[in-house]
Amino acid sequence: MGRITARKPVVKITIGVGQTRRPDTLAVEEPLEIRVAGTPLVVTMRTPGHDVELAAGFLVSEGVISSGEHFRSAIHCGGPGTGGPLAGTTENTYNVLDVALAAGVPLPSPDLARNFYTTSSCGLCGKASIEAVETVSVYDVAADETAIDAEALARLPDLLRARQEVFDKTGGLHAAALFDAVTGELLVLREDVGRHNAVDKVIGWAVLENRLPLRGTVLQVSGRASFELVQKAVMAGIPILAAVSAPSSLAVDLAEASGLTLVGFLRGASMNVYSRADRVRVPAPVTA
């Protein structure tokens, strides 16, 4: 797994049996500084891997770009010492990524730069104002006529879980996956210590594949549905967001205002649909 996982010693205690010392596999968490045209934009804590997708998805979420044509290239940069003491090395650990936008695409406003680093649990940390939290999408999610059968939707958490390879080894990563709402095909799946990073990596994949807006898709996430996940889905033009756990009240408010279908507590044969329930086709009840 390379830099995605690490082995650390652990003392395992079992009551009534005793204790043993053995190595344990952990998910790696390291900082990534994202720059645009050489100017620092944000430092986020993430699981290394798919860094270019992460940066591209982040720029979509922040409204800097809205198309694959806006993203020109990205390169890991930095010399010896960019690893830092937390990384345990003075060598370059490829934790700085510089993005180049296409010609004519405006650079991010200085106001967009985060005041401090973004933790793996917070996709909005460092925003300078309340007004900066809600970003306006160029895509009209409400006009998307996508619909999905409830039975097909109910299968997505199991399909997601079956492909969480790093979670199986560590038990410590969130996952996000994009599905075709018509065929049920899994288009892409990404894992990360941060749920917002996993979603950014999925959206960034779509940027690099020039597939925005993501009409006709379902974004399935492994945890709860927070405001920032709804916002990221709307910014990418995703009409349906499903989560295995609860949404927040602000997530529901934004979903309703944007016309996004928000599904929570998607477990087994049941689910709660908090907005635009018309997109979920429900079969007629079975009668004796």
Rank of each mutant, 00 (worst) to 15 (best):
A113L: 11
D200W: 07
P285I: 10
N115C: 07
F179M: 06
L97S: 10
L214D: 10
L156H: 00
F179Y: 06
P213Q: 13
V263I: 15
P80G: 08
T44M: 05
T119W: 01
E191A: 03
T44G: 11
P106G: 03
P40L: 15
C122A: 09
T170E: 08
S222V: 05
A132L: 12
V199I: 14
A246T: 09
L229A: 06
V166Q: 01
A246N: 15
A27G: 10
L208D: 01
E62K: 12
S270R: 04
D192R: 09
T93D: 02
K232D: 12
Y139V: 05
R224T: 14
R22M: 12
D278Y: 12
E145I: 15
E30Y: 01
T135G: 09
G57W: 10
V105R: 04
L156D: 01
Y94H: 01
L214Y: 15
A243D: 02
D51S: 03
E145S: 12
E33D: 09
K232T: 13
A257K: 15
D192L: 00
F58Q: 03
V141F: 01
G83V: 12
R190N: 04
L156F: 07
D253P: 07
I240C: 01
V99C: 00
V138H: 12
G81K: 07
L41Y: 09
L186N: 10
I15V: 13
I148N: 00
N95P: 09
I130F: 13
L214H: 12
P106N: 08
V193F: 00
W205N: 05
D192H: 02
L254P: 02
L254I: 13
D192E: 09
G223Y: 06
E69V: 03
V141M: 14
K232M: 15
A251Q: 09
P110E: 11
T170P: 06
V199M: 00
K12I: 10
A284I: 11
P31H: 04
G83D: 03
A177N: 04
V218G: 02
P157F: 14
T5M: 08
T14G: 02
F179G: 01
V96S: 00
T183V: 07
V234P: 03
K127Y: 07
D253C: 04
A27F: 14
R22K: 11
V17P: 02
R195H: 13
E256C: 08
D180G: 03
N115Q: 15
A74N: 05
D140Y: 09
S245I: 11
V234N: 14
A100Q: 09
C122Y: 12
S129V: 06
R114W: 05
S258R: 04
V60M: 11
L101I: 08
E185Y: 06
L189K: 02
S73L: 11
L212V: 10
G18Q: 02
T119I: 09
K8R: 14
G83P: 04
C122I: 08
F265E: 13
G78T: 06
E145A: 13
G38D: 13
